[in-house]
Design a protein around this nucleic acid. Sequence first.
DNA 1: TGGCGACATCGAAGAACGTCGATCTGAGGA
DNA 2: TCCTCAGATCGACGTTCTTCGATGTCGCCA
Lengths: 121, 121
Amino acid sequence: MSTTLELTPVTTAPSGACCAPLVREAADAETARELAHLFKALADPARVQLVSIIAAHDGGEACVCDLTAPIGLSQPTVSHHLKILVEAGILTRTQRGKWAYYALMPGALTRLATSLTDAAA
Amino acid sequence: MSTTLELTPVTTAPSGACCAPLVREAADAETARELAHLFKALADPARVQLVSIIAAHDGGEACVCDLTAPIGLSQPTVSHHLKILVEAGILTRTQRGKWAYYALMPGALTRLATSLTDAAA
DNA sequence: TGGCGACATCGAAGAACGTCGATCTGAGGA
DNA sequence: TCCTCAGATCGACGTTCTTCGATGTCGCCA
């Protein structure tokens, strides 16, 4: 996924009389959609906690049984949140025997952070 | 707002028989709530585009009349999204004469990016 | 092979969100 | 003073999200 905020100049010149005549559209609609999808995956306290706990966990991975108790939600709900994070490319899922281990997708959060600092620059 | 992912060790030791006995809770519930609130502010394509356009605009600020056209949404909807971004501390609003100018809150996105890289470390 | 334990999936209920048209407010100009 | 224009607020509607209990699936162990 190449979701960096590239500055693509667009010549959208509406008949605006107030401010600047030209609008440089920083992120096109498709890029914005992808970025928003990533942010939406982190837009829930439970999912932020999940990511944090997994990141701080020994070996950088954790199984669901480690996650339900500190979050304080039911097992189906935690599974649901984990699925969202995996589908967003933030976590990875590995089945080992009876248990499913979740870990951070390497570079995913860093890449998202880069998008933010690019926009702020 | 001090929403950095500090690693606060918590002795939540459930009777887990599968993996690690102790869970280091990285982000406590309150920090997770604050971070999720920030991410939720960016969890919509329209708001990501608004931030991008404002950041790329001349002078780093733009009035609403510059924003409705490229976003393709009605003026009340754009106002609504801008309000969410201001309340999240991502944008600032300045009334100058007849027009309202929106700009990036300095350091807001950078601080959010730091939270992400902290979690990934 | 039968049972158990870990986890995913399903379906439903309630809350939250995004969007719009209509309307209100407040500043500038004639 | 009255009109116009930029923008905010209001009320409503449809969609999406969060959460749960119930149930399904799959691997392990006796």
